[in-house]
Design a protein around this nucleic acid. Structure first.
Lengths: 260, 260
DNA sequence: TTCTGTGAAACGTTTCACAGCT
DNA sequence: AGCTGTGAAACGTTTCACAGAA
């Protein structure tokens, strides 16, 4: 959701005060049709359900894995298993992208990878700024998955002068008062926020002023942002608390003796 | 949403092969009623929608913040803003917990905190195992939010002998072949998986054999687990890819000139 | 009057079941 | 015969709008 998305989440909008909104996943309005054939890399933008969008990256990962292990075709059942969903859902999702399957056979992996990467905007490597190189931010700065899955960390920022100047993975940490200049210079539109909660809103405001329109927020707080800005939230303690609920429910079942 | 859903994500189950399922968020079946009054800390288990469960931690965080800043009552509008949702949703969610509001006034913060913590199973600090103290795992081991929001990291594991024995935050890293013994000895039911994807399934199997029934998975792969085990997935690259989709859509809007 | 609690409507998502292409 | 693509049904979630308690 989620969305928080977690989701899944993934979620919906709640209007905040004075025209700002705390947003996790935004509704889709475009309704241009899908007219793309395999191999063609320009198309109008299909109108995808948000739940589908949230699953495309998992399909993409599964498809890359299949391609790497020598497959070039896969059935809806096979891809669904690899992605952890059921096959009806997978077929419905992929049907929104246009027709990449052959009845009686399955899906052609390579053009399907191309189409999903196109839809997700991964045809060129996107520049990402990371703000907050403390405990967690430091680890994120070194996370190989960013690099291998379509992104490039283009700038690191921190408010702490003692951390400014530090070199991480070949990048020098800049002070947050350089956000405006660097974000504009590098045309960065996505930022990862790994600051303490107390600093997050102020940093988000600076990022948005500088032109950032998508934020991945690791700080445990709600951000208030304009409608045009997308925010997704990742909160480790929230994830554990949801699991804790399920643990509690399981033991209530056993102790209460009811309903299995 | 969930999962996964996040998913986020929150989400639903997809049956896997031979009775195993890749699970992100599990449906609720109990239907015991809510009979709890403020201050009483035993109750039957209410039948909460999964979407509500996923939001309770955010309400809890907001409530703690309000309590810390001297409030003892809050309106649905006020709490909803603090939690980033709309007030109708908040009221519906809280109505599932029983009646903690007073019409014309608002909600009593302190008993509401107590009830949410009870429902989430946070009345005693839960022991958590963390497997994989590489780049990300190391940061998670030091994350203060675990400690401050109801959890206690009770054990650290890694497969790499050169990391075994390292001391992090007062805990010594153990080898993963000690999982069975330590998880049982410490009655650990929740584990955080921060291993490479290639090791994740095998480690998950060991954890589950040892008695773990909830897993927070940071590895970019689908885990196959028995139905009784809950899995939530956090994948940083997936979150960025979802944001990338929205970036792509925004620029398609502008370039295509259609629909605002 | 104010603000919660809640039926009912609206909406989005998932699942079913099968038509139809290969 | 096999497997995709898809209407239609089922389900879950959100929003509306207001009854009714304080």
């Amino acid at each position: 959701m989620s969305q928080q998305r977690n989701g899944s989440t993934s979620g919906s909008n709640g209007s905040g005060p004075n025209g700002r909104a705390a947003v996790v996943g935004v509704s889709l309005n475009g309704d241009a049709g899908v007219e793309l054939k395999a191999g063609v890399s320009e198309s109008f933008f299909p109108d995808l359900p948000e739940a589908t969008v949230a699953r495309l990256p998992e399909y993409l990962r599964a498809l890359h894995h299949l391609a790497d292990t020598g497959h070039d075709t896969v059935s809806s059942e096979g891809l669904a298993n690899a992605a952890g969903v059921n096959s009806a859902k997978l077929r419905k999702d992929l049907s929104h992208l246009g027709s990449y399957g052959t009845r009686g056979v399955g899906y052609d992996i390579s053009p399907l990878i191309g189409q999903i990467e196109y839809i997700l905007g991964l045809t060129s490597r996107r520049a990402v700024a990371l703000v907050g190189v403390g405990n967690l931010g430091h680890a994120l700065a070194g996370y190989a998955g960013f690099t291998s899955r379509g992104f490039r960390i283009a700038a690191l920022f921190d408010a702490d002068p003692s951390r400014v100047g530090e070199r991480i993975n070949g990048l020098v940490v800049k002070h947050i008062n350089e956000i405006a200049v660097i974000v504009k210079a590098e045309s960065i539109s996505i930022a990862v926020l790994a600051t303490p909660a107390s600093a997050a809103q102020s940093v988000a405001d600076q990022l948005i002023n500088a032109g950032v329109t998508s934020i991945l927020n690791f700080a445990p707080c709600v951000l208030s942002v304009p409608d045009r800005v997308d925010v997704r939230k990742v909160d480790l303690a929230i994830e554990l608390q949801i699991l804790s609920f399920h643990e509690h429910r399981k033991s209530a079942r056993i102790n209460g003796g009811l309903r299995g």
